[in-house]
Design a protein around this nucleic acid. Structure first.
Lengths: 237, 237
DNA sequence: AGGAAATATGTACTTATGACACATTAATTT
DNA sequence: AAATTAATGTGTCATAAGTACATATTTCCT
């Protein structure tokens, strides 16, 4: 009997300490980029916290005890959007003491790139929807900071490796690729120089097909060479 | 008396649950780079865990509930080395489920650059000492991975901005700067081209002094222009 | 005073980047 | 069916950046 009482006590204390005293919670937040209507967009959800009523937030969740960080962010993606097998990269941790109104939560930010045509998400649910990256208003928590950090990382990536195939369908024209590149970097580029740059790094296959349903001369379609499709999988973190 | 016994018990359990069951602990690990005897070194300490007896580990500690991540890693540095006001940059989180033998610990890696001449550390204590980065053996935990990630980040940084003044004394010669650059990248460079590169980015001041106590023609000494000294302080994470 | 050793600087060659123009193709209009 | 239009597809030249390489100069040491 006495033993039981002690257990109760300790359970209580565990629960308290869980959020109150020495416990720090860990979450992941996903910045999910998509390319819709020639604009770079990010998937946001209406915040369910009353402190942030009306504001949007990134998709995220607490990390479970038995899951790796990347598993956690893939789970978030899968749960909320049904999407699987997406490109994902860890960006940065955010851990200011006061970043979460309900307690101490350190979050690890990931960004993902998805081709929205291949991954049909149930946008009707959950007030989940695409927002143009450049027009995102004040979000919940420090999520604007997180979005900025992820966008900068994506821009860095696209400069180093201009073919961001993850955001495009399997077959794409050079014009489409250039428009994507411009959408990410927020600049306009010379068509000829862009094509030269692409041809130099030699990562595309001409598949001898042409665009259809365009109201002008159709462009050639390309695929990414398989050897460039290596997904960046972070192994041990 | 009974109360006391309970407290003892709960304290025990707190300690257990702290690392055992539902608690995910958060730590920071610091990869502290120094430039000693023309070699890039990292500050390591003998692991105090019996699982890793004889192995070295990075300097790290659990993050306290009321401290930001960067504060935590600065505290670690200060406590263990006495050093303050150092360059520091967050690199990556490591959170594999099994990375820590005593429980779930997610760690956030930082790297620091210090000029060892300005920061005299009490190396005699704690079996704390500098180790050549290229010759580090198997360390405790996943610390080899962490070191690798931080080294790659530092290399990236030095390519973008060749003047890594944090590792050098205030006044330095171009030869010293080049040797440092070479030590970080692990390559040999042409002296003339290196100097051209440095002169182009125009970040040094010729202070009209020369090296002393060198057994050959002394080189000119330079300082970094103040406007290039902006410390990278991560604001909100 | 002369030799050794490192500093300091310049030039030619190659490669990458940026500005720019014209011919070609296929859909659309007349 | 021919002319028009609007986008695709390619090439050249000028400039900037990167790489390979050589000679003169300064200081230390003997």
């Amino acid at each position: 009997m006495r033993e039981k009482k002690i257990r109760l006590k300790t359970a209580e204390i565990e629960k308290q300490s869980h959020l109150d005293y020495f416990k720090i919670a860990i979450s992941v937040d996903c910045v999910i980029f998509g390319y819709v209507e020639k604009e770079l967009k990010v998937l946001l959800i209406k915040s369910d916290m009353k402190e942030f009523e009306g504001k949007y937030s990134l998709l995220g969740d607490l990390v479970k005890l038995d899951e790796d960080l990347e598993s956690a962010s893939k789970r978030v993606l899968k749960e909320r959007t049904g999407m699987d097998d997406v490109y994902m990269e860890q960006v940065q941790s955010f851990g200011s003491v006061d970043r979460h109104p309900s307690g101490r939560v350190i979050t690890i930010a990931y960004y993902s790139l998805i081709d929205i045509k291949h991954h049909k998400l149930k946008l009707s649910h959950n007030e989940l929807d695409w927002h143009p990256v450049r027009k995102v208003k004040k979000m919940a928590f420090d999520h604007n900071l997180i979005l900025d950090a992820c966008l900068r990382r994506l821009q860095q990536k696209v400069i180093e490796h201009p073919v961001i195939y993850n955001l495009l369908p399997e077959k794409f024209s050079l014009r489409e690729l250039q428009k994507l590149y411009e959408a990410i970097l927020g600049v306009q580029l010379d068509r000829r120089n862009f094509r030269k740059k692409i041809s130099i790094n030699d990562s595309l296959i001409d598949i001898n097909e042409k665009e259809v349903d365009v109201s002008h001369r159709p462009g050639k379609l390309y695929k990414l060479k398989p050897e460039f499709k290596k997904k960046k999988t972070s192994k041990h973190n």
